[in-house]
Simulated scan of single mutants.
Amino acid sequence: MEQQAAAISDAESKVMEVLWRSGSAMPAEDIVAALVSGHQWQEATIKSLLNRLLNKGAVSAQKEGRRYLYTAVLKREHWLTSESTGLLDRLFGGRIAPLVAHFGQHRKLSKTDIAELKRLIGELDDDQ
């Protein structure tokens, strides 16, 4: 069954990144510890984000004793595909060439970037 990517906010994605990096169930206090210093968020903010993610079905919670363990349900690859497709659709009519052209015009692509793009295009040509 293909999983739909839930629409998650930028702040919620930070919580998801912690869970994705972990790869296993985490108690709220570990998630809070991973986010408090880097984002200067309060514990209550992080717990609110966890609850929003629970309501969206992006994470699950299992009670263990007096605490809950949180697990990412939404797979990072599914979310990344949804986000990148949405960006392309909204900003570039669903086309990749104008995106690359934009970066080429407004943010110089390094020689390494250009070489990698050429390599990827060559691989795509070989597959077709």
Rank of each mutant, 00 (worst) to 15 (best):
Arg119Thr: 12
Val15Leu: 10
Leu49Trp: 00
Gln40Lys: 14
Ala44Tyr: 04
His78Ala: 15
Thr112Met: 13
Met1Ser: 07
Ala44Lys: 11
Thr45Asn: 01
Arg119Gln: 12
Ser110Tyr: 09
Ala28Ile: 08
Lys14Cys: 08
Met16Thr: 08
Ser13Leu: 11
Glu77Val: 05
Gln40Asn: 08
Gly122Glu: 02
Arg95His: 12
Pro27Ser: 01
Asn55Ala: 14
Leu117Lys: 00
Arg76His: 08
Asp113Gln: 04
Leu124Thr: 07
Glu17Gln: 13
Leu99Gly: 00
Gly86His: 01
Glu17Trp: 12
Ser9His: 00
Glu2Met: 10
Leu91His: 07
Arg21Pro: 10
Ala33Leu: 15
Gln105Lys: 02
Val15Ser: 02
Lys75Thr: 10
Pro98Thr: 02
Gly38His: 12
Ile8Trp: 05
Leu35His: 08
Ser37Asn: 15
Leu91Met: 06
Gln4Cys: 09
Trp20Ser: 06
Arg76Glu: 09
Leu53Lys: 12
Ser22Asn: 11
Gly86Phe: 03
Gly57Val: 05
Gly57Gln: 04
Ser48Leu: 15
Asp30Met: 11
Asp10Trp: 05
Glu12Val: 01
Thr85Asn: 07
Asp89Leu: 08
Asp113Met: 06
Leu124Tyr: 09
Lys108Pro: 08
Leu117Trp: 00
Asp127Ile: 13
Ala6His: 07
Phe103Lys: 04
Lys14Phe: 07
Ala101Asp: 13
Leu109Arg: 06
Arg76Met: 07
Thr112Lys: 15
Asp125His: 05
Lys47Pro: 06
Ala33His: 14
Glu123Thr: 12
Lys111Ile: 11
Val18Phe: 05
Phe103Val: 00
Leu87Pro: 03
Ser37Trp: 09
Gly57Leu: 05
Asp30Phe: 08
Thr112Ser: 14
Leu74Trp: 01
Val32Asp: 03
Ser84Tyr: 11
Gly57Glu: 05
Leu49Val: 02
Leu91Gly: 05
Ala25Thr: 11
Thr85Arg: 04
Ser13Lys: 04
Tyr70Lys: 07
Gly94Gln: 04
Thr71Leu: 11
Thr85Val: 06
Thr81Met: 14
Thr112Gly: 15
Thr71Ala: 12
Asp125Cys: 06
Glu123Leu: 15
Ala11Lys: 03
Met26Asp: 06
Leu117Asn: 03
Asp126Met: 07
Arg21Tyr: 12
Met16Lys: 08
Gln128Asp: 13
Ala34Tyr: 09
Leu124Gln: 10
Asp10Leu: 12
Ile96Met: 05
Leu19Glu: 11
Glu43Ala: 07
His102Ser: 00
Glu17Cys: 13
Ala11Cys: 00
Met16Ser: 03
Leu88Asp: 01
Leu74Pro: 04
Ala44Leu: 13
Gln105Ile: 02
Asn55Thr: 14
Gln3Leu: 14
Met16His: 15
Ile121Thr: 10
Gly65Glu: 03
Gly86Val: 00
Ile46Met: 08
Ser84Arg: 13
Glu29Trp: 09
Val59Ala: 06
Leu120Arg: 12
Asn51Glu: 09
Pro98Gln: 02
Leu80Glu: 09
Pro27Arg: 03
Asp113Glu: 11
Leu88Met: 00
Ile46Cys: 10
Ser24Val: 15
Ala72Val: 04
Met1Pro: 02
Ala97Met: 14
Asn55Met: 14
Ala44Arg: 13
Ser84Val: 01
Glu43His: 00
Thr45Cys: 01
Glu29Asp: 13
Ala97Cys: 08
Gln42Thr: 14
Glu43Val: 03
His78Asn: 15
Ser84Ala: 02
